[in-house]
Computed example of a mutant assay.
Amino acid sequence: MKKLVIGIGNSFRRDDGVGLAVAEHIAALDLPGVSVMSSDGEPAAIIDAWDGVPTTVVVDAAVGEHTTCGQIRRWTPDEAAVSAATSSHAFGLPQAYALGRALGRMPGRLIVFTVDIADASLGTGFSGPVTASVASAVDAVLTELADGGA
């Protein structure tokens, strides 16, 4: 496997399922050399999946005081982490990154997209801005996959 897409979220917590929805769209494309994984954010599973993979793209929901519902943010470990938003999970991607780095179990290239959300309450279905962002997030992931590591 040359490339991996990991969608993180919980489809029973409204907007929080956006990462899973993006991953589902990518999986449906059946792209050669690309594996797709859905995750609840459990760090060990994420580390096991991305360890040694040349390119990994992660999509997760983000919440924060200065977020704008539906906004897509991109970051890499070499850049400053998203300052206004954090993962919507109490334990997940930030811990997976820290632990994976400490253990030397990282992908060659890691790109993270977060989608700002407004509603992580119990239930299904996305808010309007998050629904509208899914296609753009899919396009952003496809661009990274086609980029080849540039």
Rank of each mutant, 00 (worst) to 15 (best):
I26C: 01
I26P: 00
A27D: 02
A28H: 02
A28M: 02
D30F: 03
D30I: 02
D30S: 14
D30H: 14
L31P: 07
P32G: 07
G33R: 05
S35L: 11
V36G: 01
V36P: 00
D40H: 10
G41W: 01
G41N: 03
P43M: 00
A44R: 12
A44P: 00
A44W: 06
A45V: 10
I46G: 08
I47R: 02
D48W: 02
D48P: 00
A49T: 12
W50F: 08
W50P: 11
D51S: 13
G52M: 10
G52Y: 11
P54T: 05
P54K: 05
T55S: 11
T55F: 09
T56G: 09
T56N: 09
V57C: 11
V58M: 08
V59L: 13
D60A: 09
D60H: 06
A61I: 00
A62E: 01
A62G: 04
A62P: 02
E65Q: 10
H66W: 05
T68V: 14
C69K: 14
G70I: 04
Q71A: 15
Q71S: 12
Q71V: 10
I72S: 08
I72C: 07
I72D: 09
R73N: 08
R74Y: 09
W75L: 00
T76I: 09
P77E: 00
D78I: 00
E79G: 14
E79Y: 03
A80W: 07
V82P: 13
S83C: 06
A84D: 15
A84V: 13
A85Y: 02
A85L: 11
T86I: 04
T86C: 05
S87F: 04
S87N: 06
S87P: 06
S88L: 06
S88R: 06
H89K: 05
A90P: 00
A90D: 06
F91D: 03
L93Y: 13
L93H: 13
Q95Y: 09
Y97I: 14
Y97P: 00
Y97R: 10
A98S: 15
L99M: 13
G100M: 08
G100C: 09
R101I: 05
A102Q: 11
M106C: 13
P107F: 04
P107G: 06
P107Y: 01
R109E: 14
L110N: 08
I111V: 15
V112H: 04
T114S: 14
V115P: 14
D119R: 01
A120D: 06
G123Y: 03
F126C: 11
F126Y: 12
G128M: 05
V130T: 01
T131S: 14
A132P: 03
A132K: 13
S133G: 12
V134S: 12
A135M: 02
S136T: 08
S136M: 04
V138G: 08
D139G: 09
D139A: 14
A140W: 09
L142P: 03
T143Y: 07
T143I: 11
L145Q: 05
A146C: 13
A146R: 15
D147N: 14
